Simulated scan of single mutants.
Amino acid sequence: MNNLVITPNYVNIFSCIGPKCEDSCCNDWGIYFDKKTYKKIVKHPDFSSLAKIAFKEVKTDNDSWAVIELDEQGACPFLNEKKLCKIHDQAGAEALSNTCQTYPKVNNHIAGNRYRSLSLSCPEVARIVLFEPEAFQFEAQISGNKSAAPIPEWQEKSYDYSLELLVGLGLDWEQALLAIGLLIRTSESVANGLEPASALDVRFEQLQKFVQAGLLNEQYEQLSCTPAVQENAFVSVHSKLCKIHSRAHRPRFTRLNEAVNSICNEDNLYSIEELNKAWHNIALPALSESPDLFERFILYSIFHNHFPMLGKDGPLKAFRLLVLDCLLIRCYLSAMAFKYQGLTQSDIILCFQVYQVVRQHRSSFADVIDEIMQELDIQTIPSTISLLKTK
């Protein structure tokens, strides 16, 4: 069997916009150089003087031999007056650090196949993923790579069926997540050896029939709205985000945090009721020209993470994290809509991208989120989906 390279069109469309970027990766970024490239820059006649103050040797290993010392504004000292990279301009792309050569590109190697993607922590990537009409056209090419050990059958079936439940049945995004959650509950049983992989085929067929009969919609409507739990989940995760966000002092994060703070009630507490009201009364009307915004984000997340893969953790954790991602971003959109009485495309991109700076680049943050959900006893599919109910 030939191994493939699978590429969504958002990868082909992307091109770095350099100094026009609203949140440049040349600021507030851990830029590490491998030993060989570092030595080359230090000896380069155009950079030798600057390199003495621009680098700090850490010598963690050969791949992380030195790190850039950012200036007081958090900018890379190798930027010129036009905010373009001097190294790239004068020494070529091969002299760049691995960070600068690859970001925001991501390659996931799974069972011999390569899945190409981009990090949503880049504003231009977020714009393309959320708004470009042809972003999610996919192409597959033969890679020529050697065969690799296959992943468990249940993982591949869970991935394929989750995509189908999202895009193939005409469901709203909240209901699609409920269907995916019911599938993932079976995935958990299969992963733990309690059921055979064929149980996923049976479950998927059942879910298709539930949707066609209107039973899934009925089940979603019967779920309770849990504002107190939603509020605790949002406040807990946002508070953690504020403490560890690498760009918390930058204007984009400040703009978002000020919007969140503007929706505090008379006791100076965040009000989920006001956030949910703002969602229905202001945000949703403002998003009428982008009705598929969350479908796009969920589709990106499933592909980018090869959902429900999550290291050694089980599929239910991956599902809970996906739902909480949606809750946080929806609350951010609601807060921005509340403060500014509407949403611009730039504001929408900000809500998704600023959150992903931590979510995608701090692997430990997933554990922080899951601990919060466990403390709030958000473990079952109904309790998880109830986070999304606003009425």
Results as ranks from 00 to 15, higher is better:
341 Q>K: 11
354 V>D: 15
30 G>H: 11
368 V>H: 12
88 H>W: 01
363 S>V: 13
120 L>Q: 08
53 I>A: 07
200 L>M: 09
45 P>T: 00
121 S>A: 15
218 E>I: 01
25 C>A: 02
366 A>P: 09
359 R>N: 10
297 F>T: 05
245 H>L: 01
186 T>P: 05
50 L>S: 09
334 S>Y: 01
70 L>M: 12
342 G>W: 00
359 R>G: 00
27 N>T: 13
356 Q>R: 15
384 T>I: 02
89 D>P: 00
310 L>Q: 10
50 L>T: 15
203 R>Y: 04
317 K>A: 04
367 D>E: 13
47 F>N: 02
364 S>I: 09
241 L>V: 04
312 K>N: 12
213 A>L: 12
244 I>K: 09
12 N>H: 09
71 D>H: 02
115 Y>Q: 11
33 F>T: 03
213 A>Y: 09
356 Q>W: 02
253 F>A: 14
330 R>S: 11
346 S>P: 08
95 A>I: 06
319 F>G: 01
118 L>V: 04
355 Y>C: 03
33 F>V: 02
326 C>Y: 07
255 R>S: 12
22 E>N: 12
55 F>S: 03
325 D>E: 12
152 P>Q: 07
197 A>Y: 08
67 V>G: 02
2 N>A: 14
14 F>G: 10
12 N>E: 12
256 L>M: 13
319 F>V: 06
298 I>M: 06
6 I>V: 14
195 E>Q: 15
10 Y>A: 07
251 P>W: 08
86 K>L: 10
297 F>P: 07
195 E>H: 01
261 N>T: 13
325 D>R: 12
250 R>H: 15
197 A>S: 15
299 L>K: 14
299 L>M: 10
373 M>N: 07
361 H>V: 08
65 W>A: 01
226 T>E: 14
316 L>F: 13
158 S>F: 00
120 L>G: 04
107 N>V: 11
263 I>C: 01
301 S>R: 12
119 S>C: 08
194 L>G: 07
277 K>A: 08
284 L>R: 10
183 L>W: 03
196 P>R: 10
107 N>K: 11
102 T>H: 01
122 C>R: 03
161 Y>E: 09
38 Y>K: 09
377 D>N: 12
289 E>Q: 15
350 L>W: 00
37 T>M: 04
249 H>V: 11
162 S>C: 06
298 I>S: 13
389 K>D: 07
356 Q>N: 15
15 S>N: 13
101 Q>I: 01
346 S>I: 03
102 T>D: 01
77 P>Y: 05
296 R>Y: 04
381 I>H: 08
378 I>N: 03
339 K>P: 07
103 Y>S: 02
13 I>K: 08
78 F>N: 00
217 N>I: 00
128 I>M: 05
137 Q>D: 13
259 A>I: 02
184 I>W: 03
216 L>H: 04
127 R>E: 12
109 H>T: 11
71 D>N: 14
174 E>A: 12
227 P>G: 09
134 E>H: 14
171 L>K: 08
83 K>V: 03
300 Y>F: 10
1 M>T: 15
54 A>R: 04
15 S>C: 09
384 T>W: 06
